[in-house]
């Protein structure tokens, strides 16, 4: 191959298409509506007061984080066992994990703010919370493994294995934390009422939030995955260009 492969410039190659721009617009309008619903249209909760409004962000971010890690695991499995070993699956896994880590961080922050107002403490050693933190750290590690360098296929294989190992790890962590907590019950902390009945508009706002955040997740992964494709192409193209320059020097 003597001709230089024209590789896409990140400045001139848009990551948006008609469809993804349409999706972005829908997400934007949905977010505006969610904000209105969450802050103005819904009433305060009888027990929690305005604190309940945090839930309209907290529940959707937690949902998106878990969804993101499921997508990462599935995409990694499809890369590992697919006949083509398509890097597209690897990039989807990576993009999804990045978005997942951000949303898991947001969900931990909003959750602990809510906990401070409702339980009187930022943190409680509840199995679900503890497992969530482990999930967060595990995927920070996963992203670090993606960053180790080497060829794209090497990155894809390594991180694919780590993502699949995480699928084994997390249930074990959760199970052992549940067993651990069952021995150490704390009675001093105000327990929230588990059977909170929500009024129609509040429930709608919550579900609407989940739907809008899911679309936001799809939009972010779509774009991030395209950016990763461009970054990989520049890596490959950069090598080609350098080789071509050396060849030109010789001639």
């Amino acid at each position: 191959m003597n001709s230089i492969q024209p590789f896409p410039s990140p400045l001139t190659t848009p990551t948006g298409t008609r469809a993804s721009r349409g999706l972005g617009l829908v997400v934007f309008l949905g977010m505006v509506l969610l904000t209105m619903l969450g802050l103005f249209f819904t009433d305060e909760d009888v027990v929690q007061g305005s604190t309940v409004r945090l839930m309209y962000i907290h529940v959707p971010t937690a949902w998106v984080a878990y969804l993101a890690f499921i997508v990462t695991a599935v995409a990694s499995a499809m890369y590992m066992w697919g006949k083509q070993h398509s890097l597209t699956f690897d990039r989807i896994a990576g993009a999804s994990a990045e978005v997942g880590v951000i949303f898991m961080g947001l969900s931990l922050v909003t959750g602990s703010l809510w906990g401070r107002l409702t339980w009187g403490t930022y943190w409680q050693w509840d199995p679900r919370l503890t497992t969530t933190v482990f999930l967060f750290v595990t995927y920070v590690g996963y992203l670090a493994v993606r960053d180790l360098g080497g060829s794209h296929q090497q990155r894809a294989k390594r991180s694919g294995v780590v993502a699949l190992l995480a699928v084994l790890e997390i249930p074990l962590v959760h199970f052992s934390v549940v067993l651990w907590r069952s021995l150490h019950q704390e009675a001093s902390i105000l327990q929230p009422n588990g059977n909170v009945t929500m009024d129609g508009l509040m429930l709608f706002t919550l579900l609407f939030g989940v739907a809008v955040f899911t679309l936001l997740f799809a939009w972010m992964v779509l774009h991030r995955q395209r950016v990763l494709t461009l970054a990989d192409a520049i890596d490959d193209g950069g090598l080609e260009t350098a080789l071509q320059e050396r060849r030109n020097e010789v001639n």
Partner: peptide
């Protein structure tokens, strides 16, 4: 340097048990 970040969360069940 990556080892502690990957290993410690993974062996948490061992520490607990």
């Amino acid at each position: 340097t990556l080892l502690p970040l990957l290993l410690l969360p993974a062996v948490a069940p061992v520490l607990i048990a």
